[in-house]
């Protein structure tokens, strides 16, 4: 089971690095929001793997709270982008 923990740790680290690179150089704000959402999903997945390997349920509310934070953040930023960058003369 510790082999699985090491393998998933390496994979999650590479995935988080990719998401952070996309946050750093994403061409628009919406790309950064999407990459931040993926980074939160990766964090929740890492918490799930910790719970499964060590056989406890302490982080389950944290996983649900992370999904709430990702939802509220994405919706809020999408609303602000839609309000700020709309142009009245373009169809």
């Amino acid at each position: 089971m510790h082999v699985v923990l090491a393998v998933t740790a390496v994979i999650f680290s590479l995935a988080a690095a990719g998401a952070i690179i996309r946050i750093a150089r994403g061409p628009s704000l919406l790309d950064r929001v999407l990459a931040a959402d993926v980074l939160l999903a990766i964090l929740g997945g890492a918490l799930c793997v910790d719970m499964a390997v060590n056989r406890h349920l302490n982080n389950l509310m944290l996983v649900v709270a992370i999904s709430i934070i990702g939802f509220i953040g994405s919706v809020t930023v999408a609303r602000f982008v839609a309000d700020r960058r709309v142009k009245p003369n373009e169809s």
């Binding site: 699985v4 393998v7 998933t8 994979i11 999650f12 590479l14 995935a15 988080a16 690095a17 990719g18 998401a19 690179i21 996309r22 628009s28 919406l30 790309d31 999407l34 990459a35 993926v38 999903a41 990766i42 997945g45 799930c48 793997v49 499964a52 390997v53």
Partner: peptide, 21 residues
């Protein structure tokens, strides 16, 4: 667990390589 971790690696690769939003 390993397949679920590979899913997030695939998401990161897709974020880096796909052309638009």
């Amino acid at each position: 667990m390993v397949v679920g971790a590979i899913m997030s690696l695939g998401a990161a690769i897709g974020l880096l390589r796909f052309p638009d939003l």
